[in-house]
Nucleic acid binder design. Structure first.
Length: 827
RNA sequence: GCGAGAGUGGCGGAAUUGGCAGACGCGCUGGAUUUAGGAUCCAGUGGGCUUACGCCUGUGGGGGUUCGAGUCCCCCCUUUCGCACCA
């Protein structure tokens, strides 16, 4: 008979609510612990990924609370974004209505899961009370040169009339209407994240409790590269072309120069070229294929001679200038010095266009590389040759020497470039934060005065699926210039929703504050977040943006901290048959149905037991029966032993345990406490649960083996202690059933707010130890000895073990004893 | 191509500093019991050999270090993830 989980779970959720059991405040008498989960996009339905994410966090929050921490554990909704707008288009429902409805549904399911959030702190980013502060922060950024407007290339869908994010371009086509995406230049708003590139990179080292993998991904994304910028003089011209290189040591091996098709200097360079038309065609072709084909054929290099030459900065020699499709405008300077002997791409290009190849680095100076014999570029370190006065240097030394030479002649300098680009935040969409800017013909770009915030999203808009709905509002874009009062135009772009999520964890600290974005004092108290849990999918973008925000806010004097998240756990995805769960694949497992069938305690216990948090988990329905059975067995064990639990439950009496069974159970209780405690701390919830299962098995074995224990004070108290301990340890995982059983046996208050047990190491010690006895590393028998026996005696006894002696043959070379573990006899 | 992980029973997964591989659960097999439930309880469960005590073998493959290797070192294979012409 299953216990009545539905009734019980509802009962305790209501009790916790009424008592505001998990409310957090700035109580300075206890150490603080900020436990944060990545807030969800409110799709309306919880999916298994959410269940896993929040179960991980909830166990931690409950554990820390019971260990004397003042725990802040909030929840909110990342409520702006495209799905709401699509719902508006498809179902003719306003995004706000759709979103708020979804939030209610989602919140209801989270309540059902029994997560111990402080719901009074809930935040929804789609409300003007929240996005007002996005706008306020934007204005602070704008005033401090962290937000600026610039013409940038973007993905443009003509049919939808909107910009697309890179992820929304699929095989060069618009994800929604399959129209070919154009590259276009548009005036867009950007955040100057590059200003923080160095700090974002360097302080990764301070994040000791982040997964290396995530830090590495961020490092690669920032892509810092140190080198030299060299100025190349165009022959018979005043024009100069700067090029960035990480290999200034190969400067004497340069035999041509390459420029990106988008390079702004090209029109001037080819102005008078007889081949102008051909070059233009090539450039047009290259620009068009950019994103689409560049990904497809990264091997085939193509280019065209511009008809122009440059003079080598140190030798004065004349070399040709090419336009090449593999040179990118948005990295470095958009121009590259080509060294075919020491760069594989240049090598291939030189072969194709029959350009000279000059060896300037060689691995062995007595036996230099021969161009004729080279089948690929030599890119490793070596000795400098054919480089005038730099010959004989190691190439590492030559990097500095050659750069210094260039520097002294005003032809170059040390330089650093980054792969990281500034963060483009403009979106031509409705359901986001309006960018608080007004364009005035006479005053230019003017921020909305802070007193006029928020700039609220208008309702008089049409959702047609084409263009920015904000442009359809007859009123929104009309505004008076804040400076001169003349009629002006309001910005209709909205912000990327990653802006919302870059600081929401600060808003939780004072969600109802109408005076400021967040309370700096509270931020100093609660931040950094002690443990942040979320999907690996956000390893780069969200986590990098949030780190950037905190640093920027710090420099604005609003917070003292430099890193928002102290410890990070990226939980693995929940798959189904090896595939991501998605509506289109029809393989979504609905947690709602499972809650209904098994109860939330079983689901929580199961999902945490199934695999360690960081690992992917391929969903399998069967396993959940195990968790459900486990809880039912505990329920029955408590019911069967109710009398002794009520009688001995609160007893503090300590007893001496005499029998083997008593000693074993007493020890198992402490061992489980130790294991569960340590496993939770290291987030190995699966082994924590197996530890509790072992304790249960020990209790069951004791109850079965020792008849009449109910009437024996020592034994009844021991069983009672064991069961209570089990409930206590289980509570963070299965909070409802444990509260109910706790109450049923006369426990006072909430078990979820009771003190966590410290294990007693003295009870862990045994007076008998079992050793494995090996001969030449192979286990041949076992030896049970008293724990105070000397090493000599143990070695002696080991030889007498029945199955061991026959392998000895009398010639023992060595005996190795590993304390409490084994004896290995080498013959 | 570059970078970072991961390979353990039928399955999910355990294994302190190198120290009895397979904890715990699922599944499966056999048994008990029952107002038949995905119930409960007991026993078994890596492979091979053996009537049995036991023996051999076994953590992707191949070498090595060691009294002893899932764990450390070298080479290879498979696989997942990230980046992908970054000058």
């Amino acid at each position: 008979m299953d216990y009545e989980f539905k009734k019980i779970e509802k009962k305790w959720q209501e009790r916790w609510n009424e008592a505001k059991a998990y409310k957090a405040s700035e109580d300075r008498s206890k150490p603080k612990f900020y436990c944060l989960e990545m807030y969800p996009y409110p799709s309306g339905k919880l999916h298994m990924g959410h269940v896993r994410n929040y179960s991980i966090g909830d166990v931690l929050a409950r554990f820390k609370r019971r260990n004397g921490f003042n725990v802040l554990y909030p929840m909110g909704y990342d409520a702006m974004g495209l799905p709401a707008e699509n719902a508006a288009i498809q179902k003719n429902i306003h995004p706000r209505e759709w979103t708020l409805n979804c939030i209610e549904l989602m919140k209801e399911q989270q309540h059902q899961m029994g997560f111990s959030y402080d719901w009074d702190r809930m935040v929804s980013t789609c409300l003007p009370e929240y996005y007002k502060w996005n706008q306020w922060i934007f204005i602070q950024f704008f005033k401090n040169d962290l937000a600026y407007k610039k013409k940038v290339p973007i993905n443009w869908c003509k049919k939808c009339g909107t910009v697309l994010a890179n992820e929304q371009v699929i095989d060069g086509l618009c994800w929604r209407c399959d129209t070919e995406v154009e590259e276009k230049e548009l005036e867009q708003w950007l955040f100057n994240i590059r200003k923080y590139a160095d700090e974002l990179l360097d302080s990764l080292d301070d994040l000791k409790e982040w997964p290396e993998k995530v830090k590495l991904m961020q490092k690669n994304w920032i892509g810092k590269s140190v080198g030299t910028e060299i100025i190349f003089q165009v022959t018979d011209s005043e024009l100069i072309i700067p090029a960035f290189t990480t290999r200034p040591d190969t400067l004497f091996g340069v035999t041509y120069l390459l420029m990106a098709a988008e390079h702004p200097m090209i029109p001037e360079l080819i102005e008078n070229s007889p081949e102008k038309e051909k070059i233009d065609t090539f450039i047009a072709k290259t620009k068009k294929k950019s994103r689409i084909d560049r990904l497809a054929d990264t091997q085939d290099k193509d280019g065209i001679f511009t008809g122009r030459y440059f003079n080598h900065p140190l030798t004065g020699e004349k070399f040709p200038i090419f336009v090449a499709d593999y040179v990118l405008m948005d990295y470095g300077t958009g121009a590259v010095m080509a060294v075919p002997a020491h760069d594989q791409r240049d090598f291939e290009f030189a072969k194709k266009f029959d350009l000279p190849i000059r060896v300037v680095i060689t691995p062995d100076k007595d036996n230099p590389l021969r161009v004729e014999e080279m089948e690929e570029a030599y890119v490793d370190p070596g000795m400098v040759v054919n480089s005038d006065k730099f010959d004989g240097m190691t190439n590492e030394n030559a990097k500095k020497a050659i750069t210094n030479e260039l520097k002294s002649k005003g032809l170059g300098d040390f330089s650093t470039t980054y792969r990281l680009r500034d963060w483009l935040i403009s979106r031509q969409r409705y359901w986001g934060t309006p960018i608080p800017i007004i364009y005035c013909d006479s005053c230019g770009i003017v921020p909305v005065p802070e007193d006029d915030l928020p700039v609220v999203l208008p309702d008089d808009v049409k959702f047609t699926g084409e263009g920015n709905p904000l442009d359809t509002s007859p009123t929104f874009s009309k505004a008076a210039c804040p400076e001169c009062g003349e009629p002006a135009r309001r910005e209709t772009d909205t912000m990327d929703t990653f802006v919302d999520s870059s600081w929401y964890f600060l808003r939780y600290l004072s969600p109802d504050d109408s005076e400021k974005a967040f309370d700096s004092e509270k931020a100093d108290f609660w931040l950094p977040v002690d443990h942040y849990i979320g999907g690996i999918t956000h390893a780069i973008l969200h986590l990098l943006y949030a780190r950037f925000f905190i640093k920027a806010l710090r420099d604005l004097g609003l917070t003292k901290i430099s890193e928002p998240f102290k410890r990070l756990t990226t939980q693995g995805m929940v798959l189904n048959n090896g595939e991501v769960m998605s509506k289109s694949k029809g393989n979504v497992v609905d947690p709602g149905k499972l809650i209904d069938k098994f109860g939330t305690d079983s689901i929580r216990t199961f999902i945490l037991f199934a695999a360690p948090p960081e690992k992917e988990y391929d969903w399998n329905d069967d396993g959940i029966f195990g968790a459900s059975r486990f809880l039912n067995r505990i329920w029955n064990m408590v019911s069967d032993n109710k009398e002794i639990l009520i009688k001995y439950g609160k007893s503090e009496t300590t007893y001496r345990y005499e029998t083997k069974e008593e000693k074993q159970l007493a020890r198992a209780i402490e061992a489980a406490t130790k294991q569960v405690t340590e496993s939770i701390e290291s987030l190995h919830y699966n082994t924590a649960i197996s530890g509790m299962m072992e304790l249960f098995n020990e209790l069951r074995d004791f109850i079965t083996a020792v008849s009449g224990f109910q009437t024996n004070d020592v034994q009844a108290a021991l069983v009672s202690k064991g069961i209570l301990r089990l409930l206590s340890l289980l509570n963070p995982f299965a909070p409802h059933i444990t509260e109910e059983l706790w109450e049923a046996i006369g426990g006072e208050g909430f078990i979820s707010l009771s003190d966590w047990h410290k294990y007693d190491p003295s009870l862990l010690a045994t007076d008998e130890i079992t050793l494995a006895v090996q001969v030449n590393g192979k286990v041949r028998g076992q030896l049970v000895v008293s724990s105070d026996l000397s090493e000599e005696e143990i070695k002696e006894q080991a030889q007498q073990v029945p199955n061991v002696s026959k392998f000895l043959n009398g010639n023992i070379r060595k005996i190795i004893y590993v304390k409490n573990r084994l004896v290995n006899i080498v013959v």
